[in-house]
Design a binder for these strands. Structure first.
Lengths: 173, 173
DNA sequence: GACTCCATGTAATTTGTTACATGATTGG
DNA sequence: CCAATCATGTAACAAATTACATGGAGTC
């Protein structure tokens, strides 16, 4: 986030919540100590404001920028989904609570789909008004990923709710 | 896993690796202390074998079974994908390393798809030979989820590699 | 005057990772 | 006999979560 410019811990939290917030959470209890560590490693510099707010502004140093790009270039790996171990054991639940849970989750997913579509609409609109929208392609792609993901989950959930024969799922390619 | 029967920490690790291992890892450094904690809370009972192996066999107690079912009945939540924050920032990478990373990931995904298909084949075969295959429906469903997931990711990756216009993704429902 | 927002932090607790350490048994 | 597997654990280190604690500024 500091690649975008100088920020305080508080600003950071707001920025995170309103951008990657859909799939990543940060608490103050993790943010402030993390900034401290980054400052100790001299990856960021600290400037205190002397106005009434008493903000501590953190700026990414060249070494920090380097560390960020190194992290970014690391290998992509399949994300491990802890949610799945729950469903893995769903056979132990009775049919009634199981259907209820699946129903609830389906409801949440539908809500999430609507949310993501709204967000995507807003972002697309904002993007149309800036100078170089192509520089924000991957940020928008992540939204598209989110949508594909929840749509896939919805389809899958609908299928298992009906106890469809899962061997008939056809590969897309 | 202890719902299936009495096991040692070592057995547990093997069982985890060969079942949920595709999407969940457990190390001895987390397993043994965890079993200790479960024993302290009297959710499992401990029986030491007196043979040469010196195994410590853990058995789920009724209270442990209850705790498991309570955990299982908890609300399902959308899994948070930390991998996505990487891709969110991909605009900061140059086109060359970016394409290389996407290519690598695509390769991994294709490997994973083949693996999952093999595993699914094996599991389906095994399932056909047991008495009540319907009691293992959700275990198999998770495999189907895994496959849908990687297939979705592959499609998405292929799209962004070509910088497709992501606004044209059509909802499935 | 009360409530919300801005702003920073610490403390306790919990947990995970990685590496280290030990020793018995089994199969080729 | 040597390597792999079986089997259990600890220690150092790193982080995250939740709750607590504090204080200023703006606004209704």
């Amino acid at each position: 986030m500091l690649m975008e410019g100088t920020m305080s811990g508080y600003d950071l939290k707001k920025t995170i919540d309103s951008s990657v917030g859909i799939f990543y959470k940060a608490s103050f209890g993790s943010l402030y100590p993390a900034l401290k560590r980054l400052a100790e490693k001299e990856l960021v510099s600290l400037n205190e404001t002397d106005d009434s707010k008493n903000k501590k502004l953190y700026t990414l140093l060249p070494s920090g920028r380097e560390a960020f790009l190194t992290w970014l270039s690391g290998p992509l790996q399949a994300a491990r989904n802890e949610q799945l171990i729950r469903i893995f054991f769903f056979d132990y639940l009775d049919e009634e609570p199981r259907q209820r849970l699946l129903e609830e989750y389906l409801f949440k997913l539908e809500h999430e789909i609507r949310t993501l579509e709204v967000v995507k609409g807003i972002v697309t609109g904002e993007l149309a008004e800036i100078e170089h929208p192509e520089n924000y392609y991957y940020r928008v792609s992540v939204l598209a990923y989110g949508l594909s993901h929840v749509q896939m989950e919805k389809q899958w959930l609908t299928d298992i709710k009906e106890r469809k024969n899962l061997n008939h799922v056809e590969p897309q390619n």
